[in-house]
Amino acid sequence: MRRLLRLQWPMIAVVLIFVVAFGLAAANFWRRGALLIGIGVGFAAVLRLALTDDRAGLLVVRSKGIDFATMASVAAAMVYIAWTIDPLGTR
């Protein structure tokens, strides 16, 4: 179990960010939750860029450049949407 946690810590960290984000969205703080999802994907992109393929664990899908570009694009889109969409009376 410790070996699994040591090897997959990047993915576990990203999943924990997503759990908090979905909790915020479920508690009717959906804009903050969406922003945190974008931040989580951005964090995954930075981890994918900074870590070797062996250390990045389950964040590795394709080549480092493609993974980073895809995740960074999704993160930028999520952060932009979360910041610019009208709250419509929600928090």
Rank of each mutant, 00 (worst) to 15 (best):
M1W: 09
M1K: 10
M1R: 12
R2E: 13
R3D: 14
R3T: 13
L4A: 11
L5N: 11
L5E: 11
L7H: 13
Q8P: 03
W9K: 02
W9L: 10
P10K: 01
P10N: 03
M11A: 14
I12F: 08
I12M: 08
A13P: 01
A13C: 09
V14H: 06
V15Q: 10
V15D: 07
L16F: 10
I17A: 05
F18M: 13
F22D: 02
F22P: 07
A26F: 07
A27I: 04
N28D: 11
N28Q: 10
W30N: 03
R31S: 13
G33A: 06
A34C: 07
A34H: 02
A34I: 02
L35D: 01
L36V: 03
L36S: 07
I37N: 07
I37T: 09
I39L: 14
G40C: 01
F43G: 06
F43S: 09
A44V: 01
A44Q: 01
A44M: 02
A45T: 04
A45F: 02
A45N: 05
L47I: 01
L47F: 11
R48C: 06
L49A: 05
A50E: 01
T52D: 14
D53V: 07
L58C: 05
L59H: 01
L59C: 01
V60S: 00
V61S: 02
R62E: 08
K64A: 00
G65H: 09
F68K: 06
F68E: 11
A69W: 05
T70W: 10
M71Y: 11
A72G: 03
S73A: 14
S73G: 15
S73P: 09
V74Q: 06
A75R: 00
A75S: 15
A75T: 02
A75Q: 02
A76D: 07
V79Q: 03
V79N: 09
Y80A: 15
I81G: 05
I81N: 04
I81Q: 07
I81W: 05
A82S: 14
A82H: 00
A82P: 07
W83F: 10
W83S: 09
W83D: 12
W83Y: 11
W83I: 11
T84Q: 11
I85P: 00
P87A: 12
G89C: 05
G89V: 03
T90V: 10
